[in-house]
Design a protein around this nucleic acid. Structure first.
Length: 451
RNA sequence: GGCUAAGUGGCAGAGUGGUAAUGCAGCGGCCUGCAAAGCCGUCAACGCCGGUUCGAUUCCGACCUUAGCCUCCA
């Protein structure tokens, strides 16, 4: 099994080879914890989750790091507006983030470092960059000097001139160049701040990732994989490369991968457009299997246009797969290598739509073949979809006795030829979210609120 | 304005130098008291214009359109 991944820095699909054979390090930019996670955050966690599962299958030792940004002006703003402490806000949303991700069966990373736990490391990383001559101090800010780093722009493929010409922003007057970015900035008393050689302050946005990566894998080691949403390519990841390359003699990272963003009505979600879809709301009314499948229905590098039908379609597919899966009798373990094929498919740059097609093909074959049915269950499980789980929504309590008696009443009506009454009862059951199926000698029912 | 991507049937969405998966929807049929589910069958697509090539949807260039980034962003 060879894993291929599209490397953003070279703009092509490459065969993945870790620095140390048998051992892989991967870092992904995690959430800034200031509000409820949305469907885009879920995609950004789910794409690396699939890669993580794949890597674990192939390599003995996989270190997956996903940070938590718990220092940020957005968090401070939220705290101010809600009259809470910064700490209360971040703790609340860390918990919610982790709960939501767990609901989607997204595996826990090996490490989830928090910025607030890593201040000494961040300070010493900045000191290294200063000492190496790639940063300067201006009006109590420490700034990275992009003019000193000749490769700047290698990831986003922009030259400094292009960026400066195209910039529409007002340039802070303490910057030598509009592209220079903040490593450390001063905090006033009402802002979160930490003691540093440069006084009370807090880190800039980019430095935390570099610092936490290096503190886990070692200053002089190269990270194998680094991922995130493609809106992070510039400036965030570009800046990380610059910092990381100027505080260590080793290459910063070998493979960069970026997922496309989630669009709603063909537009990026934003609060101003009012089209943000929160995970919390989706999880109230949908099975995690369906949400997961919907997020995997497009290739990870493509934008994913989210709509009502996205979820309906994946839900239909899940229902079909699940009802088949539940008909499996026997011992799945007696078959071997059932997920080889889906692993091969995913190994080619995480081709999840192709993997879903494979599941469809298996479900077709599974009707006559227990091995293919077992393969369907095991293959779906590999991408985190548990078809045997009975995760039927229990949000709406149903009166089972009432349902049973109505079904029986309808059965009797049908038997005696009173179809009018039978149809009335069927409509009533449907309105309760109960779907029914007439078999030869009985009627079976199921709770299907989606129908 | 600059940069980076993308444009495939009604919708979603893979893929390929020799005319193209799969899912949903539609249509026809089987089944059913009628449905639902299921099954079988079926219609239908490669933005536009050039170039390279025996041959391009696939490679190259221009154009048009869309999205993202250039400011916080997954």
């Amino acid at each position: 099994m060879t894993i291929k991944i599209f490397n953003t820095i070279n703009r092509k699909k490459e065969i993945f080879k870790p620095v140390k054979s048998g051992s892989v390090s991967m870092y992904v930019c995690g959430p800034t914890v200031y509000s409820h996670p949305h469907i885009g955050n879920a995609r950004a966690a789910l794409v690396p989750d699939i890669l993580f599962r794949l890597l674990k299958r192939k390599y003995d030792n996989v270190t997956y790091i996903r940070n938590i940004t718990d220092v940020d002006d957005k968090i401070s703003d939220a705290a101010f507006k809600q009259k809470k402490t910064v700490y209360e806000i971040s703790e609340t949303f860390i918990k919610i983030y982790q709960d939501n991700m767990a609901s989607l069966d997204i595996l826990e990373p090996t490490y989830q470092p928090r910025v607030t736990d890593n201040m000494p490391g961040i300070v010493s990383t900045i000191e290294k960059i200063l000492k190496n001559g790639f940063a300067y101090i201006s009006e109590d800010h420490i700034l990275f000097d992009t003019s000193k780093y000749k490769e700047y722009g290698e990831l986003s493929k922009r030259t400094l001139d292009e960026m400066i010409d195209g910039a529409r922003i007002e340039v802070a007057d303490y910057k030598k160049s509009p592209r220079d970015f903040i490593l450390w900035k001063p905090s006033s008393n009402d802002q979160p701040g930490w003691e540093s050689p440069w006084g009370l302050g807090r880190p800039g946005w980019h430095i935390e990732c570099t610092s936490m990566i290096k503190s886990i894998i070692g200053n002089e080691n190269t990270l194998d994989l680094h991922g995130g949403g493609n809106d992070l390519i510039f400036p965030h990841h570009e800046n990380e490369i610059a910092q990381g390359s100027c505080m260590s003699s080793s290459k910063y990272c070998n493979y960069w991968f970026h997922n496309g963003i989630v669009l709603v009505n063909k537009k990026k979600m934003s609060k101003s457009l009012g089209n943000v879809i929160l995970l919390e709301d989706l999880l109230k009314n949908n099975k995690s299997n369906s949400i997961r499948l919907a997020l995997l229905s497009a290739h990870y590098r493509q934008p994913l246009n989210w709509s009502e039908s996205t979820l309906i379609e994946s839900n239909n597919l899940i229902k079909k797969f699940s009802s088949l899966a539940r008909s499996f009798v026997g011992d799945i373990n007696k078959y071997e290598n059932l997920d080889n094929e889906i692993i091969d498919i995913l190994s080619d740059d995480l081709n999840t739509p192709e993997a879903i097609k494979h599941l469809s093909a298996l479900s077709k074959a599974a009707k006559t073949n227990q091995k293919d049915l077992a393969s369907l269950v095991v293959s779906a499980k590999f991408i985190g979809i548990n078809l045997l789980a009975h995760n039927i929504s229990t949000l709406k309590a149903i009166d089972e006795e009432l349902v049973k008696s109505l079904v029986e009443e309808r059965f009797n009506a049908r038997s005696s030829g009173d179809f009018k009454k039978a149809d009335e009862i069927r409509d009533k059951l449907l309105s309760m979210g109960i779907s029914i199926k007439d078999l030869e000698d009985k009627t079976v029912w199921d709770y299907n609120p989606d129908n």
